[in-house]
Computed example of a mutant assay.
Amino acid sequence: MTTPTSTSTSTSTDERLARATLSRAVEPGDEHAGRWLHRYGATGFLDRLLGDARSTAADDPFPGTGQKRVASWRLRATTADPTRDLATIHELGGRFLIPGDTEWPRQLDDLADARPLGLWVRGPADLRTWALRSVALVGARACTPYGAHTAADLATGLARHGWVVVSGAAYGIDGAAHRGALAAGGATVAVLACGVDTPYPRGHDQLIRRIAQQGLVVGELPPDTHPTPSRFILRNRVIAALTRGTVVIEAQHRSGSLVTVRAAARLGRHTMGVPGPVTSALSAGVHELLRGDATLVTDADEIIELIGDMGQLAPARRGPVLPRDLLAPATAHILEAIPARGPTPTTVIARRAGTTPDDTLVKLYELHSLGFVERHGEGWQLTNRTTPTSNARRGGT
């Protein structure tokens, strides 16, 4: 596990303070703010918002943006205390990352104007490094035992293959995924819809604390900020952008988890789903995705085959190998033509197999030497032995 030593290289203190202020003033994913931020930078945006640029934009500092929205930004910005927020995250052993920092995950830039202003982070690992090899596991809060078991099993398998499991720390599938990764001694990242010092849900307080010790807890919102329904939805775009792909496990038709996987699809990430019972409403949303462009997966190997390096193929799926599976096709065809009961003449077997008696006799003696058949007078019958000799590997050669 790599411990970051610095949050910044080229980013200035003023830029960091401005973005910390704006993280209180602007709601996550606000594309109106994102466009002005792209145009003026964080310090320029804040100067215009607080009136320092009245000489150039006296009446309307943000043309085309609604006055109510701007008024809300301004009100929040005037009450923000970025120095205190940065001190709080520092006391927690965390940091505030902004674009330009060496630890900033560049794939977040794919969100364009909806890119986070910054990320408040707790935990010892390097977010950028971890995000390069990560996968999101998301799903229903009120999941079934099947869903919880599957999420934990997938997370454990991914962790054992060196992949980072990213989720939202919610009840149900999220919690099971985090626990599965932690139980395997693996890496996991929780992306919160609140301040990283405000564990939510409360019932996951200990889980989130453990993730902060062994993995990473990440959020767009500054310390002591509480979640809202819209913030949960907007948080999902960060989960989708951070990771190489998103797997959804149990989701109803209107589940927030589907927002995550659809955001991943828009960003060009891999989208995957784990099927459930066709009678389960909790899997109806997943099945809808699987009828579209999402890929069906059932274990960690299949996920890695899709999102991993070229050549990382999942093991072939097949049933147990039986002795008769090792026979050459022509020999197996004769075996299939022998009736289940009673000795049968060679000519009858040949007729049933659609071949000549001479060719049939040759194959029958091969089958006899391998323990599949016995001769009784002029006829042949199947043996009662269930495990023919290992020489079956040479059948038909």
Rank of each mutant, 00 (worst) to 15 (best):
Q312N: 11
D110C: 04
I338R: 01
D301L: 05
P343I: 06
K363D: 14
L313Y: 11
A187D: 14
T383C: 07
R266N: 15
R237T: 08
G311P: 03
N236T: 04
G354L: 03
I334R: 03
G395V: 11
A155P: 11
G186A: 10
A148V: 00
H32P: 03
R160K: 15
T56F: 14
Y146T: 11
A330Y: 07
V217N: 07
S72L: 13
D197L: 02
S10L: 14
H149R: 13
R160D: 15
A328P: 08
E91S: 15
S6K: 14
W104D: 01
V278D: 00
E374V: 15
R394D: 15
W120V: 03
H32M: 11
T65C: 12
L216G: 10
L306E: 10
V165C: 09
A140S: 15
Y171M: 10
G311N: 08
P357R: 12
S230P: 01
G203M: 06
M1E: 10
V121A: 06
A57S: 15
N384Y: 00
T344A: 08
T225G: 06
G118S: 06
T5W: 14
S280A: 13
F96M: 07
A87R: 07
S283Q: 09
I208S: 08
G168I: 10
T298I: 05
G342E: 11
R39L: 14
S230C: 06
R202C: 02
E336R: 15
A183W: 11
H287N: 11
D293M: 09
L290Q: 08
H204D: 03
L367V: 12
R95E: 00
A314H: 09
A33F: 06
L370K: 05
H253S: 14
D358A: 15
R210Y: 00
P229F: 04
A251C: 08
A80V: 09
L22Q: 00
L86M: 09
I304L: 08
P388M: 08
D30P: 05
P315G: 11
T344N: 09
A170R: 05
R69Q: 13
F45S: 02
G215A: 04
D109I: 05
L154R: 01
S12L: 09
A148M: 05
H287A: 09
G245E: 04
R16H: 04
L192M: 12
F372L: 04
P343G: 09
G94L: 02
T3H: 12
S255D: 09
E15Q: 08
E366C: 04
S230M: 09
R76F: 05
V259R: 06
L49I: 04
H32W: 13
D301F: 08
R141D: 12
R95K: 05
L361H: 13
A131F: 01
G29K: 07
V278L: 13
G377S: 10
W163S: 10
E366R: 12
L92G: 13
A20Y: 02
L242S: 10
L158S: 09
D14A: 15
T246P: 03
T295M: 02
